[in-house]
Design a binder for these strands. Structure first.
Lengths: 204, 204
DNA sequence: GCGAAAACTTGCAGAGTCCGCAAAACTGCT
DNA sequence: AGCAGTTTTGCGGACTCTGCAAGTTTTCGC
């Protein structure tokens, strides 16, 4: 599958990955404010000018991993059986992508805290998530026989699912609940599938 | 309601509004790329340095009107009867905020096209919408007896509603459908309230 | 193999953003 | 009028981002 790519392509992909990884690592370690393009480029062994051939902003590089994640998820979504209900496919794909190990948890928390500490990174994160949402919508449109240029359905379900996961993560990181992330995501999907009925006024 | 504010406060608000309006107008007229902080400041009759006392980036000023819109909507949401179903309140508030006049339509289209033409403005727009979503979630939490720090419900419904409107506008501006915006928003809410059932495979 | 052609990297220059700091100007109150 | 608290402004400096042109590296056909 990943065959048939020349040396050139592989080198480009490697450079891109090295830049994204360096940007992300430095942002987590030093805090976004203290990361310069110069430092990222140095860590990836290219010139600062080259950095800007790959990413149009520092923030874009920092959140590049989200786009990668989105690409993997879209692939997996397309690999689900065509007769599976779409909600099931979405939920399965998202839940399976969660890393349940303690290190996975720490990494995710560090990521989210780094992002949330800086408004311009938040904006880039949302932008990346929106790109993911659009890809999902297209995949779903193809599968459900709807048209991403005309119909609301694929966009709404893709957005609802993406937002379900984001909100679950946000609440989970906030730490006011000790429920596992998987469970939160599961509940979010259940609520959405039920049409978000108004809860009765006693608290759980 | 707007009483009890000194001259000072009013002047600040006026400066902020002037800057936001100038930024937005120039962005629509000239295209985002050709708007400099210097030009915005000049149009609002303050120094460039003062601009940055009000907004931390050019993009933030350009999309400031979204935050204003969000504030008005949140107020109206809180003014709805407390026993109205939340979905009805949300739908009513959003639908009533739409401007159905031809000029309103042109303005909205110009706005959205300006935003969509520039990635960094898209990111700021999403950021502003996310702020709106959070405010809505808090208002809904208060009204539904849920807790915005613990419960998924208020965030999910606020996000679903906000996204419904955004998606409707995006499709509407795309122009591949000639259905009125109100109708699209209405359909989006209906789909969400029904739990986004999978459409059968024949196209409408 | 070899030599273009195409693609990638780099340095440089220039426009612009954004922020900290301290002086100057202004407002509200007595 | 005069003081205290705020706001505006200019300046300096670090940094981002882009266009351009020259220098390298990879690819491809012969």
């Amino acid at each position: 599958m990943t065959a048939e790519v020349g040396l050139r392509e592989r080198k480009k992909a490697a450079t891109r990955a090295a830049l994204a990884a360096a940007a992300n690592r430095l942002a987590v370690e030093l805090g976004v404010e203290h990361v310069t393009v110069e430092a990222i480029a140095a860590a990836a062994d290219v010139s600062p000018r080259t950095f800007h051939n790959y990413f149009s902003s520092r923030e874009e590089a920092i959140v590049a991993s989200i786009i990668d994640w989105a690409e993997r998820l879209t692939d997996e979504l397309q690999r689900r059986p065509a007769d599976e209900p779409i909600w099931d496919s979405l939920q399965a794909v998202f839940v399976e992508s969660l890393d349940d190990s303690p290190e996975g948890h720490s990494r995710l928390i560090a990521q989210l805290e780094m992002v949330m500490a800086n408004p311009s990174v938040i904006a880039s994160q949302l932008s990346a998530l929106d790109t993911m949402r659009r890809r999902f919508a297209e995949a779903i449109a193809a599968r459900s026989g709807t048209d991403a240029n005309r119909d609301l359905y694929p966009h709404l379900i893709a957005g609802a699912a993406a937002h379900a996961v984001k909100t679950s993560m946000d609440l989970w990181v906030l730490g006011r609940t000790d429920r596992p992330l998987r469970e939160l995501v599961g509940e979010a999907f259940a609520l959405l599938r039920a049409g978000l009925p108004q809860p009765d006024r006693r608290r759980s």
